[in-house]
Computed example of a mutant assay.
Amino acid sequence: MTRRPAAEMPETIRHILRAKQHPARAVACPHCGAAPHRPCVVRSRGTVLTQPHPGRISAWAQTVACCPDCQVTPTVPCHEDGRARTTVHSRRYQEAEATAA
């Protein structure tokens, strides 16, 4: 009997298996530097967090959803009165969660 090399799992199936995780784990965390699909950690203690940092959730929402408030497309930061915001509008979070569901 010959052994076959292991086939790589398609990304679509891999994503379904990770469905128990918060969808924001699909992007890297700007706060702690956690790689995509890895949990956030407290840098000073190395403690693994159960939920992603708020900055990671904001980065994820910015990546996947359009903002209904300021009418920007995905990957473009939200703005207010011509100035870029450090976080996204709350309606963009809702839009991202609806996209992920």
Rank of each mutant, 00 (worst) to 15 (best):
M1A: 13
P5R: 14
P5E: 11
A6F: 10
M9T: 14
E11K: 10
I13M: 11
I13D: 10
L17I: 10
L17D: 05
K20A: 13
H22V: 02
H22N: 15
H22F: 01
H22W: 03
P23V: 04
P23K: 04
A26T: 09
V27F: 03
A28L: 01
P30E: 08
C32M: 05
G33I: 08
H37W: 15
R38S: 11
R38Y: 06
C40N: 06
S44T: 14
R45V: 07
G46P: 03
T47D: 04
T47I: 09
V48R: 14
L49D: 02
L49E: 00
T50D: 05
H53D: 12
P54L: 11
R56K: 06
R56P: 03
I57L: 07
I57T: 10
W60C: 01
A61S: 12
A61W: 01
T63H: 02
V64L: 00
C67A: 09
P68A: 09
P68D: 06
D69G: 00
D69W: 07
C70N: 09
V72L: 08
T73I: 13
T73E: 15
T75M: 12
T75G: 08
P77D: 05
C78W: 06
E80Q: 14
E80M: 14
R83S: 12
T86Q: 13
V88Y: 10
H89C: 03
H89T: 01
H89W: 13
S90R: 14
R91L: 14
R92F: 06
Q94A: 15
Q94H: 12
E95I: 01
A96G: 04
A96F: 08
E97I: 10
E97A: 13
A98I: 12
T99G: 00
A100K: 07
A101Q: 13
